[in-house]
Design a protein around this nucleic acid. Structure first.
Lengths: 345, 345
DNA sequence: GTGAAAGCGCTAACAC
DNA sequence: GTGTTAGCGCTTTCAC
């Protein structure tokens, strides 16, 4: 077991002071080329690399971003994590993962743990955080961004899709498709994504003289969604919706399976189904789901931007509320409007 | 912006020494109840929490485990990450994520970065690591476990399913189902999972007097798999395989979609499809895939166990090669053998 | 441009 | 059981 190589050892070998070594490994420091060469050579030979933790202690910057996430079974989140991690890595940051237990977790405890690691920032995905805790982060000068969730907590940033506009566009699409009995299967009522999507959807219907034909709650959970769909569609044909917007793709797949394999309904002939997220399986032929695309790459870019802005200049970085437009992705799970695609101009 | 609360401040407020404070927050230390009370009270009032990084510096233990992963689009990995993160959290550890870029990444650089964080251990998933680098980790006394990949690199642990046995069981199942023209769509040839699954599958066929009717490589990539399936099945009916084992579920879904929607084949009437992993979508009715279950929970438990064993007693923790049996999950994508399920005894 | 010296916040001997 | 004293490996003034 090799000893740990320290900057001091490198210094001795290179015949310079320890601080010279430090300077060589500090981007903006002033060192002569000669010193750089000597130090680099010695470091190479010894296999020296700066200890990030020690650097973090003295500089106060850990270059660690804490990510709080409740579950990974909605594939929007793994996708997000991959993009986020890559984006941060490019900036020299890394993601420390904190799962809040499925069981209505003590998320505040988790955030406390995060803070203990002296993270430079926190991203929360699919979880709520008490405003007391948010205050604590602000006090500690650790920027927080809520990803895919809007929260009006003071001082906290958020990045979401434009869920209201998305819901509205879906309503327009379904009505244009000639549907008359349009239903909605909701997500967990506490989530802003759920609220905004539904509000937009209802608004869109109302603008076109319709309203929800049926509504049920799937809690963003496949089993709940399946049951909700069963109850909603297992009725006489004339009392059955002819289209349904399911609040996210993950539930939509379960709903489609239930409709097809349990209720023997054809999609989209008997009923149109649309979702929200555009996770990868939505493009799989077995589902071929018409849905709103959450542009994870853009959302992550905004998230990273908000974080870094605050880290680099805490004083002048106001919290931001970013909303990214979500394009409609038309596939085969919903009947197309006549004259589709629409003519430009 | 609140100042950072240090143990010294707590000490002053509690009227004790700074080391007394430290002891109160150190599990096995000897402190009187009276001191504990005073310190806890002062800490509470100040909102003090020990700085994990400072602790890490002096103790040499960061309680961070580095996870290297190449991609998250095979849903086996998000599942793994969730379980791993939860399991480690319970032990007071956390996961620092490192993505190696899709593009045949410089994984060695990534591991170097990990080492810079003074991690207590490293888990690699779906990536290979040069043996030179492995040596470096061993030298640094950082245990490494290869998750879902067997590598005979010295000093490195690995945890995998029993891929050979799994492949063999699949062969037996397919032959028992009356198949005569059995094909295989391989994963990336460099992966041990691919090699072992194929070897087991071939062995199983050979034992029953059969051999591969066709073989093609899907590279563990859906597009490649789709193309491979197309070429393999887009032939006269009598030259077409009647069953295919696709090296993982992720590719199997793409293959099923191709067979059904492009080639208009019925599953399992025209062709049986089996996969490996049992990721969540395998249970979705649209796929209903017969597959071998990789028991992620057990695999993770072994991973954590191997890591902690080494961390707690580096001298006596030999690297281990763990292989977890994978149960066959029979669903509807493959024709059942006669007299299924088999009688016990 | 470079070295000496002072910590970052904490744990771990070491005396008492 | 408690306080005192050294550092952990590094960055960062500060003189020179």
């Amino acid at each position: 077991m090799a000893e740990k190589v320290t900057s001091l050892q490198v210094a001795e070998r290179a015949g310079v002071s320890q601080s010279a070594v430090s300077r060589v490994f500090t981007p903006g420091a002033s060192v002569s080329q000669k010193t750089v060469d000597k130090v680099r050579k010695a470091a190479e030979e010894l296999g020296y690399r700066p200890n990030v933790l020690a650097r973090a202690m003295v500089s106060g910057k850990s270059r660690i971003i804490g990510l709080v996430v409740a579950y990974l079974d909605n594939y929007f989140y793994p996708e997000t994590l991959e993009i986020l991690s890559n984006a941060l890595q490019e900036q020299g940051y890394h993601v420390l993962v904190f799962m809040t237990s499925h069981t209505a977790g003590p998320i505040d405890d988790v955030v406390q743990e995060i803070l203990d690691y002296q993270v430079d920032g926190i991203v929360t995905a699919s979880v709520a955080m008490s405003s007391k805790l948010s205050q604590k982060c602000i006090q500690a000068n650790v920027p927080v961004v809520h990803f895919n969730r809007f929260e009006k907590t003071q001082g906290v940033s958020s990045v979401t899709s434009d869920n209201f506009a998305g819901g509205r566009e879906l309503a327009q699409f379904l009505v244009a498709g000639g549907h008359q009995k349009i239903a909605y299967i909701a997500g967990w009522e506490g989530a802003s994504t759920q609220r905004d999507r539904e509000a937009g959807f209802r608004a869109g219907l109302a603008e076109l003289g319709q309203s929800l034909f049926a509504r049920s709650c799937g809690e963003f959970d496949t089993d709940h969604a399946r049951a909700a769909a069963h109850a909603m569609f297992n009725v006489a044909a004339d009392k059955r919706p002819d289209a349904v917007f399911v609040a996210n793709d993950h539930m939509a797949f379960a709903v489609m399976d239930e409709l097809r394999f349990c209720l023997d309904l054809k999609i989209p002939e008997d009923v149109s189904v649309v979702g929200f997220d555009d996770v990868p399986p939505a493009a799989w032929r077995a589902y071929d789901l018409t849905t709103m695309r959450q542009r994870a790459n853009l959302m992550v870019a905004e998230t990273v931007d908000a974080l870094l802005a605050h880290i680099e200049d805490p004083a002048n970085a106001a919290p931001r509320q970013v909303s990214i437009s979500a394009p409609l992705i038309v596939r085969g799970s919903a009947r197309l409007p006549a004259n589709w695609p629409p003519q430009e101009g």
